[in-house]
Design a protein around this nucleic acid. Structure first.
Lengths: 204, 204
DNA sequence: ACCTGAACACCGTTCAAGT
DNA sequence: ACCTGAACACCGTTCAAGT
């Protein structure tokens, strides 16, 4: 002891990612992080105004690490969508509780803006009006977050001795193809006639 | 004082629902619940082995209250699916943080078994093989949970003075119609040929 | 069957003060 | 710029004991 233990924002994020991967989101507390870094809990508030903002930074870094930096910019819209969603899945699967973290962060409106914007742009270029592109992009993200969160839950269950929890690429691919096929249908319908009576779909 | 304050399981669940609706999921703690009921925190563990199981019971009750008890059993599969999903949405929208609660509970494999089973059964009857019906049902639930969670987040933001957060039935209907159209496509494709090369959808 | 009392091992956040 | 020290107001859970 005697040496001061100064850190930068990026040191904190880096260590948070390793705690996340090793012990899970539930064990990722400000106090634990501080203790690990040899610092008082209050010191972390020099770098982040709240735990939520720290988690947002961790989620951003997790997604940034999962990004392949060169990526096809041309091709059919459905292929481009599949690439973005597959990359997002891989990024979240790379860290324990990655999907839970990203979903939590984007629930309070902070993370995953990048993939959301990319999907919206691709779908706009594919011919959807802005509102439709936005809705379709959100629907894709809901699928990806939900599906990968399920995969990681089962993964952890199987790590604790249960059976049959390996992530199935084909399940993800088929689920994604459902949403993509639905969007294709929306593109074809749009401009022509939107269903005049949506109430049947509401069930009342 | 002097009167003993005995409660039954259902009293605890009932009060938990009212705390949820009034103060939100973050304020729904075992200690707060106990204090409200005039009881020691440890007393709750007579009724529930853990907070997670208490939350599961609360989610079950929330969904049970949202159920219309007589419901069409015949009709087109897409209409039946829309009814189940719309009812699920209404049930969650009826309580503050309802979607967050149900999603959290079903993430650790406890709640919303009812809607999941119903959807699976409807989709099986529509001609999907068991694995496909299961996957399609989960995809529908991911959409509903994600979409309604978004709606409730925006609802709370707008309650705190922000603009433009009213739940839009039409957004839900359009999003749901995307997933339903995708499932329709899957039903048509199945038996014939499944896409031989799914790797394009994985993006690598 | 339902509850008390007390303890254990934690949380996030604030704030004046230090270097 | 980055951190300490101390406090405030909380958590979930366990367990022996009581009626």
């Amino acid at each position: 002891m005697g040496e001061r233990v100064r850190h930068r924002r990026s040191d904190v994020v880096e260590h948070a990612l390793s705690v996340l991967d090793r012990y899970g989101l539930a064990d990722l507390s400000m106090r634990r992080l501080a203790t690990d870094l040899g610092v008082q809990p209050s010191a972390l508030y020099h770098h982040f105004a709240s735990k939520q903002l720290l988690l947002a930074a961790v989620a951003d870094e997790l997604l940034a690490r999962g990004r392949r930096d060169e990526r096809a910019t041309e091709g059919e819209w459905d292929e481009l969508v599949a690439v973005v969603c597959g990359e997002l899945r891989d990024a979240m699967l790379a860290y324990r509780d990655g999907a839970e973290l990203v979903a939590a962060v984007s629930a309070f409106g902070l993370g995953a803006r990048r993939p959301a914007d990319e999907l919206e742009q691709i779908l706009g270029a594919a011919g959807l009006a802005p509102a439709g592109a936005r809705l379709a992009a959100r629907t894709l993200l809901h699928f990806v977050f939900g599906h990968v969160a399920d995969e990681q839950t089962q993964l952890q269950a199987s790590a604790s001795g249960a059976i049959d929890g390996l992530p199935q690429d084909s399940d993800f691919a088929v689920g994604l193809s459902i949403v993509i096929a639905g969007i294709r249908d929306l593109i074809l319908r749009q401009g022509n006639e939107l269903p005049k009576n949506l109430s049947w779909v509401m069930g009342r």
